[in-house]
């Protein structure tokens, strides 16, 4: 019998490392959503002075590739500085797993994206962004590509759910092409605020619905 997965991947799927939550984490990030079929939440504990990752844990609603990749990358970056951790790519994780079927790469990318987001959140909330380039409207739209449209399983930008973004004096207003009574309105609003509130020059985030 040959499932399209290597031994190591299956082993980590069965017994993933670093699973769970961290109480009072220094940073946390979630990427994906149940709607797109994969979702990862990652928690970081980082040493203030050395910026080394002291502890890292994850939770996954996802397939075997996703769970195994999250297990591998959390192992790789534990004990590394956040700068070193940022350099970890999905390719490296995939290699560690003995390769991934091409069709499964996107599940694995999500785990690595979540790590990057968690580190970015850490840097932003700890004032570590060195070149504080002022955020632009386009930067915000890029960020919003990480928020999934639960009705489509793709991000809100690609699916046309995002109607407009206004960014003035640190105040972001995100307008969605959606009724406020929509069953996902509150969930989307929370996800958008979570995505944007850590940006260093964003002071407030408001989500509006135009239908």
């Amino acid at each position: 019998m040959s499932l399209p997965y290597g031994k190591k991947l299956l082993e980590l799927f069965k017994h993933p490392h670093n699973v769970g939550k961290i109480k009072n984490p220094d940073a946390k990030a979630t990427e994906g959503s149940p709607a797109c079929g994969d979702m990862v939440t990652l928690y970081l504990k980082v040493d203030d002075k050395t910026h080394k990752i002291e502890d890292i844990k994850f939770e996954s609603y996802g397939c075997a590739s996703n769970i195994a990749t999250a297990s591998v990358i959390t192992d790789i970056v534990k004990g590394k500085t956040i700068d070193e951790a940022k350099k970890v790519t999905w390719k490296k994780a995939a290699d560690e797993l003995g390769g991934l079927p091409p069709v499964k790469v996107h599940c694995s990318v999500l785990a690595v994206d979540t790590l990057r987001s968690a580190i970015r959140n850490y840097e932003e909330s700890h004032g570590l962004i060195k070149n504080k380039v002022p955020t632009t409207r386009n930067d915000i739209i890029e960020r919003l590509k990480h928020v999934m449209n639960p009705m489509k399983g793709l991000d809100i930008v690609k699916t046309g759910l995002l109607f407009d973004v206004i960014f003035e004096d640190g105040k972001v207003t995100v307008i969605l092409e959606l009724e406020e009574s929509n069953q996902f309105a509150s969930n989307l609003s929370n996800e958008i605020i979570e995505q944007l509130q850590t940006i260093w020059d964003v002071k407030s985030v408001e989500v509006k619905f135009n239908l």
């Binding site: 799927f13 994969d38 996802g62 075997a64």
Partner: peptide, 25 residues
């Protein structure tokens, strides 16, 4: 609810129980 279908189906397979899922994966 709250658990992903492909992972569930794969676990069933590891227990030698053959099922299918509607998961995208």
């Amino acid at each position: 609810h709250k658990v992903e279908g492909e992972s569930t189906a794969l676990y069933f397979d590891m227990e030698e129980i053959e099922v299918i899922t509607g998961s995208a994966c």
